[in-house]
Nucleic acid binder design. Structure first.
Lengths: 228, 228
DNA sequence: AAAAAACGGTAACGCAAGTTACGAAAAGCG
DNA sequence: CGCTTTTCGTAACTTGCGTTACCGTTTTTT
């Protein structure tokens, strides 16, 4: 199959050779589907077709908000997969919609064959199952982190946690914020003016210093203290 | 083992006969531990002991946030399991605490044996892995739901969503709430008085009616409207 | 059955964060 | 360069929720 190279970059097939992939895909009876720009690849609430892997193009995972507005959850690039969570749950419907932003080619993996018994009980198949376990639990842990953020009552605690994670990631007390104010506010689930106000208060108290996207942690212990 | 019946109700062993279970448990080297009411079964951040299965009693999965406020993530009943997410992650510590709400009996399954290759490649073992996949993705979906709850800004929207889910589950407009006020407040991540106050306001407005744990939805369209 | 503990409704008060609106600095663009 | 657009800080006002405290009721314990 001509898409084999792309398929190999998919985390699901990490540690699998192209030869193994060829064998497996033959077993899977794969169907490549094509979509035009602005066409829906999946529709939230509709019947689940199998785990999708984006082969070419660009697509957006979207969800409808309470207010009925579409929010982009994630952008998909070739090699990315979607629907891996819904695949093994009881309720076999798409938890989100996927919208093609460009012409896209997608392959769907039937979940029953994936988890089901391979007659040959081949090693690659087991590797794939292990990958799947690690992927999904990774996703679950990521969601746990999100819950931790949202469960924080005070805005200051959210900001502090956010800054500390960034500090940990970048390694220096002075660094650039990876997002604009608006995006940070969205991520922390607060309004932008509230974020600005609180950041300025923290600056007044000598905890941090900043200008636009460049920020410096002036009182690290204090910052940690806020998050407990 | 006397708990074999309960173990069979554990979703991890769904579709497995008692005879198969006997064989597998022998291989697993299981230890049953007992806990008193209000005793911690696991402690957040402490060393991971293996996937837990609650055999008897009732327990709450909780997390502490910065302010020391405990939020209930989930309630556990006999046959329920916990810690399956941490089992396949790199960092082998408990991501949450589990607190016994009643005297509890718990069995722990070592994760390496679970995911590792069974020499016999027996069918029950494969069933168990498939079950595990289904369980973890179910948990991920549950967390997604939790995130959706917490992302709601107004308390009224959280209450309405909670009541609508309960209505959907129980099928009648008049039903019993599955938790006490304190637990609901924890679940919705608000204070108990605030929950009471808002529920009374909704009663005053004729949306719902309630006394203690029995509740009746009087204006279903209105309730749905609030969540939109 | 009496005592103790848990549960749930209520009210007053304070404060953190949302809302809205405006202006200045920075960035994008013809 | 000059114009437009985006980004960000700031301030006044509003509001929803937390906190605390109290009390009646229900449940549990002895």
């Amino acid at each position: 199959m001509k898409y084999m190279q792309v398929l190999q970059t998919c985390p699901l097939f990490k540690g699998t050779t192209v030869a193994d992939l060829e064998k497996m895909t033959a077993c899977f009876n794969l169907t490549v589907k094509k979509y035009q720009k602005n066409e829906f690849i999946t529709l939230e609430g509709h019947k689940f077709d199998g785990i999708g892997v984006l082969l070419t193009g660009k697509a957006a995972v979207t969800k409808e908000n309470a207010a009925g507005r579409r929010i982009i959850m994630e952008m998909l690039e070739p090699g990315d997969m979607f629907g891996e969570m819904a695949a093994f749950s009881a309720n076999k419907v798409w938890p989100a919609s996927v919208l093609a932003q460009e012409p896209c080619a997608v392959v769907f993996l039937p979940p029953d064959k994936l988890a089901g018994n391979c007659e040959k009980k081949c090693i690659p198949h087991q590797t794939m199952i292990a990958n799947m376990l690690s992927l999904i639990s990774g996703r679950a842990l990521m969601l746990t982190r999100k819950v931790e953020y949202l469960a924080m009552k005070s805005l200051r605690a959210r900001i502090s946690t956010f800054l500390l994670e960034e500090y940990k990631r970048q390694g220096t007390l002075t660094f650039m914020l990876p997002m604009k104010r608006n995006e940070i506010a969205d991520f922390l689930n607060v309004s932008r003016p509230s974020l600005s106000r609180e950041m300025c208060r923290m600056r007044d108290e000598g905890i941090i210093d900043f200008h636009r996207s460049s920020i410096r942690i002036k009182n690290l212990p204090r910052l940690k203290e806020i998050t407990e």
